[in-house]
Structures are given as C-alpha cells and as structure tokens.
Nucleic acid binder design. Structure first.
Lengths: 230, 230, 230, 230
DNA sequence: CATGAATGAGAATTCATTCAT
DNA sequence: TATGAATGAATTCTCATTCAT
C-alpha cells in the first residue's frame, strides 16, 4: 500500500462515518474495517481516537482558515479602513465555506462534524478548535463588531452563534430537509440555493431589535422594540 | 425501595447524565450507580437503553404536546378565526416550551434529544418523535402560514427549519456556548435569558426580505430588499 | 456456578500464575481461561487487575497479620514487660508464617508473591502492603529493637530486610534449590528443615558486628569487629 | 548516526529502563523512543527483546566473570595453597561486583537480572547465566569450602544461597527499600554503603552455629549452640 | 544498512444484556 | 418483583515483530 494512502483512507472513511453516526457511535473497528486498513493503523498514525477526530477537523479547517484569512485581507484592502458591510462579510464567509469542501468530500459532512463538535461531549475538540482556529473567528468577529456598532458585545456573540446554529443545523441535516422540501414543494434545492436563502435571513437576524429586557434605560432603542414585527 | 421510586430515580438521573454527556457516552452503569439502583433495573423496567432514552424524552414530549394543543386552542378561541400574529405564536410556543422543563430538570436534554432526532444514528428517536410530535407541528405550521401570507410556502418551510436549527443548536449545545460566553463576557445566562434573546431574532429572521433571485417578478418586496442591511 | 465460587477460583488461579510468571507476564486472559471463568469476571468482581493482585495478597496477609498479633500478645503476656529474646521472636514469626499457608496453597507461592512485591514495579502493591500491614511489622520491629538494643536503628532496619531477602529468596525459589540440593547432597529438605536451618543464620546475622565505618568513635564495639570471622 | 552508536544507545537506555521498571513493563517503544533510535532498530540489531535482555546482561557478566577469575588467580597466588579466609573471599567478590557496574550504569540492573534468573518466567535467562557464570561460581564455591572446613557441605550450600538471597533481594529491590529507609531514617544509602553493611552480616551468617537438630552427636559444636542468642 | 510503515496478536477494560434465584 | 452474578461482544490501545524501500 502506498505511503500515506493509509492515512488518507482513514481520514476519508472516518469523516464519513463520524458524520453519519457521531463520534462515540463510530468505533475504530468501523473505520479501519471499512477503510480496509489494519485496526492498529489509527493508533499508529494518529496516536488515539481523539487525535483522529482532531485530524479530521484539521483537514477542513486548515485550508478554510487559510483562505478566509486571505479573503479578509483582500476585503480589508478594498475598504481601506472603512467599515465593511455585514452583508459583504457574510457573503465572503459563505463563499469561503463553500469553496473548501468543494475540493473535499462534501459540505454536509463538514457541517455535521461542526455540529457534533458543539453538541457532543467532546470537550477536547472544542478546545482544539478554539486553540487552532480561534484567531480567524476573532478576526471575523471584530469585523462584524465594526459592522454592527449598535449591538452590545454579548448580544452579538449570541446572535453569531444563533446563526451558526442555523447554518450548521440546516446544512448538516441537508439530506433529510431536502427530501421533505422536494416532496412537499417540488423544489430542487442546491447548496448554493440554500446559502442564497440563508443570507437575507442571517442579515435580518443580526440586525433584529434588541430584546426588551435589555432596553431598560435605553429609551433610544424603544422605537425599535415595537418595530420588530412590523 | 418503593415501587415506582426506582423508575423515577432512573429517569431523573438518566436525563441529567444524558444532557451532560450525550447518550452514547452515558452507560447504564453510570445511571444506575448514580441513581443508587440495581444495574439490571433499567433493563427490567424499560427493556433496553433505547427504550429508556425514549421514556426520558416522552416525559418531556407528552406534557408539551398536550399543553401546546391547549394553548393553541385558547389562542384560536381568542382570535376567533382572525390571523394570529407570528410574534404571538412564537411567544406562545416559547412559553410552552419553557413551562414543561420548568417542572422538570432542564430544557437542555429536551433540545439535545431533538437535535439527535435529526442525526442518522438515532433513527428510532426520529420515528418516535414524528409519531408523537407530528400533528402539533403540523397544526403550528398552518397557523404560521396564516401569519405570514406573503411568504412563499417553500421559503416559509426553510425559514422555519433555519430557526429550528438556531433554537436546537443553541439550547442543545448550551453548555459549550455558556462556557465561552461566561469566559469572554462574564455573563451568567439562564435559559430564560436566551429565549428572550432568541425571540426578536427569530421574528426578524422570519420576516426577512426574500432572497434576490426569488424576487424577480415580485417588485412589491423590493423595498425590503435594500432594507436588510440598513 | 455457585455464588462466590467464581471469586475463589479466580484468586486460586491468579496466585498460582502470578507466582509462576510474575504480575505483568500474567494476563487476565491467562487467569480467567485457566480458571474457566468469564474474561470479564475479574473486572466485575475485583474492578481491575491491580485490585486482583492486592486481593491475592490480602488472602495471605489478613490471616497472617491477625495470627501474628495474637501470637505477639501471648508472648508479651508471658514476658510481662521483660525483653523477649530475638530468638523467641523469630521462632514465633516462623511458626506463624508456616501456619497460614499450611491452610492455603503453599508457602512457596506466598513467598514468591512477596518477592515480586518488592522486586517488580508494582508501586501500588508496596503501598497497599505498607498501609494494611504496616502496623504488624512496626510492632514486630519494635520488639526486635528491644531485643537488640545495641544495634543502631538504621542498621537494624537493613538487617531485617537482609533477612527478609534471605527468607523470601530461599522459600520462593525453593523448588529450584531443592532440586540442586537433592542432586548434589542427596538430602530431602522439607520447609520445616529449611526454617530450622534459617533460624541460627538469621540470629547470627542480626547479631553480627557493626560494619567498620560505622564504628568510628564507638570503640566499645571494637572487640566484636575482629570477632566475626572467628 | 554512527555505526554502533545505535547499539550502544539501545543498551544504555535499555539497562536503565529495565532496572527502573522491570522487563515486561519496559516496551521496545519505550527504549527506542528514549534512545532516539528507530523502533525497528532493536529487532534489527539484536533480533528480539529476549536477545536484548541477554545482551544487556552480558555487558555486565562478561567483564565480571573475567575480572573475578583474575582476582581469584591473584588471591591463590598470594596464598600459595594456603586457605584463603572467608572474609577475604567475600571482600574480593564484593570488590569485583562493585567494580564492573562502576564503569557502567548501576548494580541494580545486574542484580535484578540475577533475581529474575531464578524466576520461572525467565528460563532463557537462567540458562544463559549458567552457561556463562557456572564455572566462576563453582570455583568460588570450592574456595569457600576450604575456608569453612567445619561446615557440612549441605549446610554450606544452603547458607551460600541464603546469602545470595540477601544480596540479590536487597540490591534488586534497592529502590523500594531505599524509599522506606529514606523516609524513616533520613538516610541516603549508596550501593557502597549497603555492601559495607552486608559484609559483616554475611560473614556472621556463614559462621553461625549449626542448627540444633543437626548437632545431635556433634557435641563439639555445643558451645556455639547457646551462643547465638547471646 | 537503516527505517518508516504496517500488522496481527493480545492487552485491560467497559458495555448492555441475561439469568437464576 | 427485584437483584446480584455472570456473560459475550466490543471497546481503545499497546505490543513485538516484519517488510518494502
């Protein structure tokens, strides 16, 4: 068997199985037998199951992180210190997110993995992601902060994660949702379609009026309070 | 030990542990030893681990389904055929969702179960949910349709699921997010806080302008189109 | 299978295999298959391999500890505060040591286990033994101290362990040595014979003159210094 | 990396790790990674783990055997047929034993190997030792016989092995004992200290009165009989 | 000569489940 | 009705060894 072929096959198989069943429900036996690789190969090449999980993530996040940094560089160059509109930021992110898995397996897998990283009890994964890719997210957050100056920091944090949930949930459960949509509305939705649908929703969500309780003592926002259903 | 005391203790312990660690990561040993109950008791009383998971879920789902039906009955009674505003619908849902776990342990396990219901590996759960949950959701969807008459059906379908994603992702991954929020913003967020924050976001998202490509031939929405980044 | 039969069979088999091969070289598979017991039984009944090792020891040391305390009680009763001669102490110990394994498997196994406890990298075992049985040894040591008042404490400590080595090494390697002795000297030695041979040697060793370097400034021991080869 | 540098580094590392943890507890991975040598190097250079153990041992045994023969040659030359005193023999042996590891790492691994040589599980080692070691031991035994003419042959055999046990047990379990000694007596004992302590003890043990039962019909030893407890 | 990659065997442990009582 | 004991299957991981290069 060729040199790093084994490593690639393990990663390919692992990411599919992880996405299908979750981390705990996928055993190294599952992976290695489906990858037609020796059972000990995972431990040999990655050291542990934990490390394999992290490696699967890195294969997506490393190029994403790199490309996103580049894209933000360009964007900042174009705007020369001026505020980059939220919509532009989100479109750039969407483009980058779409670009990476296009070369790899699928967006669905990536998103399902991301979802698992947050919902499953994989503290090590969250720590790993925050450690390795925290700065890209921080940089992006900072640009979003400038684009939404009226939003309190905590509120912005939560809304970003609300939207992360939207995106991850939708794209990771894509197949199931697509089935229903097709059956009920006779629509063939591509990932690009979905992202197009997502963009205005996310922008509107980020710009939603503040929740009532936070506005006490902030009368200048009062007019928005009744506006959000208009 | 009293008759059904054992059953209750198992359910109480199981829901806490499931919420903390997930299903696969929680063993029956964990549950029975923490519940100070015989190891065989789960299999004796519930038959299997799967059945226990569903039982934990039913303890949330059954009263929720019942209460939500009642709440919608009341709402429809009050509005006597008139359209119920989206905001009212969402507030009612939020209130009901919060009411049930308030009596019980936490919303987290409920949401985590919902989240897993969408993952392949827990097929039995999804089937279980659709059986119990399907008609309430259908009824709710229909009311939402009436409240958002301008939204194409397909768009409404997607946005409902976008928001489902937001809610499930946020509440099921609550611990992870809470950790980060606490570290970065020194905020102690309760579930109620989060729901309060969620409401305007969800409303705004549902009312977001339609995506550009879908607006061709729908000029009456054009004014919104430019509005969403303002 | 009868109730605690499994436990007994595991202990019986484990002690033999441990003595034959050492701890690390004896796998739980070895033990359970030879004991005709389920592989998981060790973990079920003892929790871990470590705990099994300690249990094997306890089965010897608990009755020994008990009996030795009783024997020392009697001895102290007989001597009513007067010093108990070293020879008497050693004879009492020998008798107790011989009594316990007589009911159990064999002295050889016990001794080999003791030897392993000191020579193999089983830190947990040494700690366990010291914790559980330290006080008997301490009590014995104290009586030995009174019986050998001229010996510096450290010197006594080392000599006691020298003798422990003698006894453990001899009795644990008994079969091999017995073979050679029989072949070369046509002698049939029983364990009792060996203990009889050991006694004067141990007494002489304990009463040996102090090593030269320690005698500087202790001229009153000088006469012994030249005596030990006489 | 230079030619036999690898071999030396493996041996150096192996002997340290073997002494620290024992043989079974030391994996080839441990050795090669600590020696910064390829994992396959042990099998390449030595053939197997067994062979490595023997090689480690030979590095002690070969020079010891050679030097001890030389030392005994000198001794016999000095005494020209006259009896060499027991003390001198033991001192010579001690000196030789100490001299070899002085050039190398420690006495501990040497003794631990010796100790294991008597344990069933390391049959290959015992065979290896008897091949290399047998004639030196035979020669030494014969000189001891001449130095202790009053000792029955069988008694001498047993006492030599008693003392072998003392030495091997003490020096192979050195770390454990040193731990206790340090904790209780705040003494930092070196190997040299221990050997100094051992010498008078061994001499006294060899010269101990004969056990009572063997003295029947041997009245000329009677005076010693009561002496050993004095 | 030397090594990175790979492997089959086996390690301890944990699992959900079953069974005799 | 309830449970302590037991079990077979599966878990991750480590082992010494081999092999192609």
């Amino acid at each position: 068997m060729a040199q790093s072929d084994t490593v690639t096959r393990i990663l390919d198989t692992a990411e599919v199985l992880f996405a299908e069943r979750g981390f705990a429900e996928t055993s190294l036996r599952n992976i290695t037998s489906k990858a037609r690789v020796n059972l000990a190969a995972v431990n040999y090449h990655f050291g542990s199951k934990k490390a394999l999980i992290q490696a699967v993530f890195s294969r997506y996040l490393d190029p994403f992180s790199q490309r996103f940094h580049t894209a933000l560089d360009e964007l900042e160059g174009q705007h020369r210190g001026r505020v980059i509109p939220l919509e532009t930021l989100l479109e750039t992110m969407a483009t980058t997110v779409l670009a990476v898995p296009a070369e790899r397996n699928s967006l669905k897998v990536f998103m399902r993995l991301l979802g698992l990283a947050y919902s499953q009890a994989q503290g090590h994964l969250r720590r790993h992601i925050q450690q390795e890719y925290g700065d890209v997210f921080t940089r992006f957050s900072e640009l979003v902060r400038k684009a939404t100056p009226d939003l309190p920091d905590a509120e912005r944090f939560w809304r970003l994660h609300f939207m992360l949930g939207t995106v991850i949930f939708t794209l990771s459960g894509l197949d199931a949702l697509r089935d229903i949509a097709e059956k009920d509305y006779h629509e063939q939705v591509s990932v690009r379609d979905l992202v197009r649908r997502l963009l205005p929703v996310v922008v509107a969500a980020m710009n939603a009026p503040l929740p009532l309780a936070l506005e006490e003592g902030k009368p200048e926002e009062g007019k928005h309070a009744n506006a959000y259903a208009s």
